[in-house]
Simulated assay, not measured.
Amino acid sequence: MHKANDGQFVATKSVQRRFMANGVRRIEINTDGLYGVLFLPEGEGPFPGIINLFGGYPGVLEFKSALHASHGFASLTLCYFGMEGMPKSFTNTIDLAYFEKAVQFLKQHKAVQGELGIGLVGICKGAQVALAMASCLDDIRCMVWVNCTINAVCGSIAYKDMYWPEQQMKTNVKIPDGPIPLIDFFDVPEEGELVNMVDGVFPFYNRPDVSYMFIAGSDDQCAAAKRSAREAEILLNRAEHPDFEIAYYEEAGHMLEPPYSPHCSVLFQPGPTFDIALKCGGELIAHCKAQEHCWHKQLSFLKTRLQ
């Protein structure tokens, strides 16, 4: 706490949070070209398996997989750029063959209920990759998409003879002095317009065997999340898909993380192409309430589809 008049500290308090329950095991994975960290719940299992994919942060972020394991899932947080031997940037063309290898690794792990299929959880660029995986890879049972697009943005995606070109950024946008709202650098489609971008939209809606959850913050300043989730809803209804959920959160921003995580209104995007501060959006109280609500929805969705 600070004094209102001179900004000096009058009191401080440190709060330590545990992301990993007692008995959860942390295993580094660096084999056959895969790199990540696998978290396993206490006990022998087998457990339902999840792959966690983050956005534009290089390497791995472990806290969400640790929390998933604390709730009974075998959770692999997977690196896909920014480490030695891997692409330097997520804006390079992403080949889904690497992620296919990760799916099979987790499916065949002795502690994983591989016969049920694998769940995917992705946010930002990770949600985009997860949606592409769910569109064409085998052994995907369900996926959670958080605040991204349903087409390739900030880099193209490829798998075998399939290719999704990236949506081009605007070149006539004035760069602000402060944090950048990345959404301003893309043409946000009107309702129904994105549905017609056949070459750029992933064909996830053609997979009736995959269950989907889309979570979108209406004040996301990094991606057209609400508009994209609405387009996903149109496509899934048109395909008469049997199992999907769409959740919209008014005044929530981009970084929808587990409950009680600090509201991240601005983030620094490291790495080639970027190295800039990005505006994430979100009204403080509404965003924090959305984090708490959507986390429990995710856990319930994953448990019912993977068990």
Rank of each mutant, 00 (worst) to 15 (best):
I246G: 01
I276T: 11
Q128L: 14
S261K: 09
A277N: 14
E193M: 13
I51H: 02
I118P: 00
L78E: 07
N172I: 13
G43F: 07
Y57R: 09
I246W: 01
C124S: 15
I150E: 01
G192R: 13
D6N: 15
G281Y: 02
T273Y: 13
F105I: 03
V146G: 00
D32T: 12
L116W: 06
Q298G: 02
A130G: 09
F202P: 01
D139F: 08
L120N: 00
A239H: 06
Y80C: 07
P242C: 15
K125W: 14
S70F: 04
Y205D: 09
F105C: 01
E42N: 12
K170A: 13
S70G: 10
V210C: 06
D209F: 11
Y163P: 04
L120E: 01
C148Y: 10
Y35I: 09
V37M: 04
R207M: 10
V37N: 00
G7Y: 08
L76C: 06
T273R: 09
V188Q: 07
P48W: 04
Q221N: 10
V129T: 04
N5H: 13
Q16H: 11
N147M: 08
K3H: 15
M133E: 00
G271S: 09
L38S: 03
N172F: 13
A224E: 02
G59N: 03
A216I: 02
A216L: 03
G119I: 00
L302S: 04
T304W: 12
E251I: 04
D95F: 12
F39G: 01
A134C: 05
H241G: 14
R230V: 05
G59K: 02
R230I: 10
G36T: 06
Q291R: 09
V195F: 06
N30Q: 14
G55P: 06
E292W: 08
A134V: 01
I285E: 14
I150W: 00
G33S: 11
S300A: 15
C79K: 07
P58H: 07
K125R: 12
G7P: 05
K160P: 07
V195T: 14
E251T: 09
V15K: 09
H254R: 10
A130V: 03
L137R: 10
Q168P: 06
G45S: 08
G56K: 02
C288M: 14
L120R: 02
N206Q: 15
A252H: 02
C148W: 05
G36Y: 02
M20T: 10
K226F: 13
R207S: 08
A158T: 13
D199L: 14
L306F: 05
G200Q: 15
G217E: 06
A111T: 07
S156Q: 09
G33W: 10
T93L: 07
F90G: 01
A127H: 03
E240S: 15
R230H: 08
N151L: 09
Q298N: 07
E28V: 11
L96N: 08
S300F: 12
N92L: 09
C264I: 15
S211M: 05
G7A: 09
L53F: 11
F54C: 07
V103F: 07
C142S: 09
S261E: 14
A286W: 06
K297G: 07
N92T: 12
N206S: 12
V153D: 00
V210S: 03
P176F: 08
A134I: 01
A132Y: 01
G282F: 01
G55E: 06
G119P: 00
S265Q: 12
G126T: 05
D275Y: 08
P242D: 13
G55W: 05
Y260D: 15
R238I: 12
